[in-house]
Each structure stands twice: as structure tokens, then as C-alpha cells.
Simulated scan of single mutants.
Amino acid sequence: MTISDAVMPIGRLASRTGLAVSAIRYYETQGLVSPSRGPGGQRRFRRSDIRRLSFVLIAQKFGFTISRIRDLLATLPDERAPDEDDWTRIAEMFRADLDARIETLTKLRDNLDSCIGCGCLSLKKCALYNPGDRARRGGEGPRYLMGDRPIPVGAAAPDV
């Protein structure tokens, strides 16, 4: 493989990924790709940047933040193109995040019609599951959806 085969200009990368050139530049400013510079300062991207940017698109589709995507991609080697073992490792981290999201979405789906510890106390059930808004002691937000358990009637609310 010659050096011209190993790198490509931004226009070719845009064509290979389906991204606009401006999007690739944005991802560069966010540290998701790091092109080298050719004669005259033109960006030169590695072939492996096609996969990196494809991963970015998939991760964004699943709701991952640029910051989290950057953290995941930071585990890949800079000195060489990522190999199968590298992508397997990053996929395991990605999978762990997705599993946590699936668990949260399942809780939301299963508890959407009951008290979720949000403090609104608008359902009659809330008087049983969250009397006096005791869930608030755990912090802000829908405490039961976030993993807190309802405090049994007669038990003292935990101090946070």
C-alpha cells in the first residue's frame, strides 16, 4: 500500500461516510478524528477514520453524547489502525452502556403508569409507594426509576 492509499482528503472521507465536510471538521474539533496535514495544510485522513466516523454516527443515533463517544474512541490506538481486538474491546464498553440504558427504559416502560418517585404525588398509588414524598430524600428526579426502592410503610426514610 502506498502512502496515497493509506490517507485520503476530506472530500473522499465525506463521500465514504456520507457526512458533510463541515460535519467532519466539527468532529475533528471535538477530537473524534485527528487528520495529519499534507502539502499546503490539507487534511489527510486515515482509512480507519471511515470506521471511527461510522461509529460516531451509530453512537449518536443511540443517544450517546460527543463526550462519551470521545471517551470510547480515546481507548483506540493512535499509532495504528484499530484491529478486531480493539473494536471488540470498545464494543464491550458500548454494550455495557446500552445494557444500562435498556434496563432504565424497561423500568420506565414497566412503571410508567405507577408511582416513579418523582414527587408529583398525583396518583392515588403514590400515597402507598411514596407517602409524604419520602422518595425526595434520595435526591432530585424520579427516584424509583433511577434505581431507588420504595421505602416500606413503617420504615424510616434513609438520610442522604
Rank of each mutant, 00 (worst) to 15 (best):
S4A: 04
V7G: 03
M8L: 13
M8H: 03
P9W: 08
P9R: 13
G11S: 13
G11L: 02
L13Q: 03
A14H: 02
G18A: 11
L19T: 02
A20I: 00
V21Y: 00
V21P: 01
A23P: 05
A23Q: 11
I24V: 10
Y27A: 15
E28F: 08
E28S: 09
T29D: 10
V33Y: 13
P35R: 06
S36R: 15
S36C: 00
G38S: 08
P39K: 05
P39S: 06
P39T: 06
P39L: 12
G41F: 15
G41P: 12
R44V: 01
F45D: 14
R46Y: 02
R46M: 01
R47W: 00
R52N: 01
L53V: 06
I58L: 09
I58M: 07
A59M: 04
Q60T: 11
K61F: 09
F62M: 07
G63Q: 05
F64H: 12
I66G: 03
I66A: 03
S67R: 14
S67C: 12
I69Q: 02
I69F: 02
R70T: 04
D71G: 07
D71Y: 06
A74K: 07
T75A: 11
T75Y: 14
L76W: 00
D78R: 07
E79I: 07
A81R: 04
D83C: 03
W87I: 01
T88S: 04
A91W: 04
A91K: 07
E92L: 08
M93Q: 14
M93K: 10
F94P: 00
F94G: 01
R95C: 06
A96N: 13
D97I: 12
R101S: 13
I102H: 11
I102K: 13
T106A: 15
K107F: 13
L108K: 12
R109Q: 12
D110W: 02
D110R: 08
N111W: 05
S114W: 05
C115S: 13
C115L: 08
C118K: 05
L121Y: 01
L121S: 14
L121Q: 15
S122R: 13
L123Y: 00
L123Q: 08
L123T: 06
A127S: 09
L128K: 15
L128G: 09
L128T: 15
Y129N: 00
Y129Q: 02
D133P: 12
D133K: 14
G138R: 05
G139Q: 07
G139L: 07
E140R: 10
P142W: 04
P142H: 08
P142V: 04
P142Q: 08
R143K: 06
Y144E: 10
L145M: 08
G147L: 09
R149A: 14
I151K: 07
V153M: 06
V153C: 05
V153N: 08
G154V: 06
P158I: 11
D159F: 04
V160I: 08
